[in-house]
Every structure is written in C-alpha cells, then in structure tokens.
C-alpha cells in the first residue's frame, strides 16, 4: 500500500494512464494519489488540460484530448510526480523530471528503475533539457521496451 511502502500498485498506476491508443503523442501522466494543498500543475498548463479547482487539495484531473505534451507540468510539479509518456512502435518514450548528478547524456544507456526502486530494464537516453522555466529540474527523455510502460519510473545509473 502506498501509504505504507511509498509506491502504488500497478492497478493504481494504470488508473492514471489513458487508453493506449491515446499515447501516439506525449501525454502527461499525473501520479498524484493523495489530496495535498498543491496546484502548480493546473496553473502552469497553457491549455487548461489539468483541473484542480478552487480547493487546491483536490487531486488533479487531466483531459488527455487537450494535453499537448508541452511538459510545463512535469517541471512545475513540486512532487516530481508527472511524466510525459508516448509509444513509438515497440518502445515507450518517457520524459521524466530529474534532479540528481550526474545528468544523463544523450546516447548513454542507463538502468531503468521501477516505482519500488528495482532495476527492470535498460533505458536509452534520447535527450536532456534544462531551461529557465524548468528551474534546475532536468527533463530527461528516455526510451524503454514497451512492455515496461506501467513499470518504468526513473533512471538509476549509467550502465
């Protein structure tokens, strides 16, 4: 249980994903499982795809059809719980927030890590992005085999 061990079950994770057909372009996956007073994801979205409302404790709701995959919410979320996900052929492409050193470099292969901290696959580093808006949070684009769509959460170390 996430309240006890700190990570969600695969069933919980799936509730935060759209139908797989929607993932032809990057979509924001918001893994917010708890009502906390926080709303930057919603206020940072340029197309109002994310709704929280007057009570900032509510869990964000995203309209997958409106999401343009810009990534503003990814670096705006103080909980680092949002990533962009898309599927390209047999690969799942993730754009994840990353705040550790060293920063992965394009072309490197890193370990792919699941939500409980276990290494599950290899992850190809496709791109890293850091700009003024992201405020020292790096957005790392990685690809992993599609079968890890609901398992991959971050990269661990360079292999």
């Amino acid at each position: 249980m996430i309240k006890v061990n700190g990570y969600p079950t695969k069933e919980q994770v799936k509730t935060k994903f759209p139908k797989i057909e929607k993932l032809v372009k990057p979509i924001a996956i918001i893994e917010c499982y708890q009502e906390i007073p926080c709303n930057p994801c919603s206020t940072s979205c340029p197309v109002n795809a994310i709704t929280i409302g007057e009570d900032i404790n509510k869990i964000p709701k995203i309209d997958y059809d409106l999401c343009i995959g810009c990534g503003s919410c990814v670096y705006s979320c103080p909980g680092l719980c949002i990533m962009l996900v898309s599927i390209k052929e047999d690969l799942a492409i993730f754009q994840i927030p990353y705040e550790l050193l060293p920063v992965p470099l394009t072309g490197e292969i890193w370990s792919g890590i699941d939500r409980s901290g276990h290494q599950i696959c290899e992850a190809n580093i496709l791109k890293t992005l850091k700009n003024k808006q992201s405020d020292r949070t790096v957005i790392v684009t990685v690809s992993v085999p599609k079968e890890f769509l609901y398992d991959f959460s971050t990269v661990g170390c360079k292999l």
Binding site: Q34, G79, I113, R115, G117, G156
Partner: peptide, 23 residues
C-alpha cells in the same frame, strides 16, 4: 507509526531511488 507521515509524492521519490521505508 503504521504509515508514512508526509506527502506520498515525497516518499515515492525516495522509494524509486532505492530507499526502503520501514514502518
């Protein structure tokens, strides 16, 4: 206690980086 006290998003960040939380 029998559960995590702070925000779960903070806890999840740690767990995926390999920190076991022992309640």
């Amino acid at each position: 206690s029998d559960h995590i006290g702070g925000y779960l998003v903070h806890a999840s960040k740690l767990v995926r980086l390999g920190v076991p939380i022992l309640t």
